[in-house]
């Protein structure tokens, strides 16, 4: 049974007014336990609207969302419990920090779940460990931390709820490369260790290429592709036609192939490209297509 399933999900802003706008239309997809799905699409393509449906922050105009096979809007009064199963980290999550200490801020979610203090303590420490926050930082005010540390506190705050599905909306936006690599690696480790389903919304194709096993592409509020990462990036022309980039090495591979060289399937990370090109480039290793 899929952890998350949507059926014909549609959402319209300000229905029945001149400002009416279809944000997402007829979205049907499933995510299985342990999936790592990248969600891409240009600004306004409906990515954020979609993910806000998965934890019940938005109520669909039509269609359904199932978490573990149960329609989340079957009992609207219990919608809050869905948010503990499907954790959502918003863009620039450090802007939502409010507690006196980083520890208390991470504990906010678990506390709302009604857990006992021991359990909360255990979860806060575990989450802090995942995002690499040192013990002594936990007792500091979140406002005294550096930008990257704040971001990690905010992400830990959602991880501490130990959701079955973790959704991150642009978790690396605005960070420098070092901070970006660190957070991305932590998310990967977390996913591996807990077999959590992760949905990663990002503009950064190289982040997606490095982490996601599957990619969901949105355009004008609809799903236009949902496939293995390599398959999606092999449709580079289609991606470019809807205003999306493909990783630079993918473009290199496409050009090489166009020039008649059999370089094998598309690479989308530097490592893949390196492994595939090296034997071809070594003297005598070249082969014609």
């Amino acid at each position: 049974m899929p952890v998350i399933e949507t059926r014909n999900l549609s959402y319209t802003y300000s229905p029945g007014t001149p400002f009416r706008k279809d944000a997402i239309t007829d979205i049907t997809f499933t995510a299985q336990k342990g999936d790592f799905i990248g969600i891409i699409g240009h600004t306004g393509s409906g990515k954020s609207t979609l993910v806000q449906h998965l934890n019940g922050l938005l109520r669909p105009t039509s269609g359904q969302v199932f978490v573990n096979g149960i329609d989340i809007w079957q009992q609207p009064k219990k919608i809050r419990s869905v948010r503990f199963k499907v954790g959502l980290v918003f863009q620039y999550p450090e802007h939502q920090l409010f507690e006196e200490t980083a520890y208390k801020d991470i504990a906010f979610g678990p506390k709302n779940m009604g857990l006992n203090d021991d359990e909360i303590d255990k979860r806060v420490r575990l989450a802090a460990q995942f995002v690499g926050l040192r013990e002594e930082l936990l007792q500091k005010s979140p406002f005294e931390l550096s930008g990257g540390e704040k971001r990690r506190v905010a992400i830990a705050g959602v991880m501490a709820m130990q959701p079955e599905v973790l959704i991150l909306d642009e978790p690396t936006a605005g960070l420098d490369p070092r901070g970006r690599d660190m957070i991305l690696q932590q998310i990967l480790d977390y996913q591996k260790q807990n077999q959590t389903t992760v949905l990663l919304v990002s503009h950064n194709m190289e982040d997606i290429a490095r982490s996601a096993k599957k990619v969901l592409v949105m355009n004008h509020g609809r799903i236009v592709m949902l496939d293995e990462t390599a398959e999606v990036f092999s449709r580079a022309h289609e991606l470019e036609s809807i205003g999306l980039d493909v990783p630079a090495v993918t473009r290199i591979f496409m050009s090489l192939r166009k020039s008649g060289f059999n370089v094998g399937p598309n690479a989308y990370t530097v490592k893949q490209a390196y492994d595939r090109l090296l034997p071809l480039l070594k003297k005598g290793g070249g082969s014609n297509a």
Binding site: G87, F90, P93, H95, Q96
Partner: peptide, 16 residues
């Protein structure tokens, strides 16, 4: 807009 966003973010952490 910002208030809207913060409210959603805290709701996502189970704020009632």
């Amino acid at each position: 807009e910002e208030t809207d966003k913060i409210m959603s973010a805290q709701k996502a952490r189970g704020a009632d």
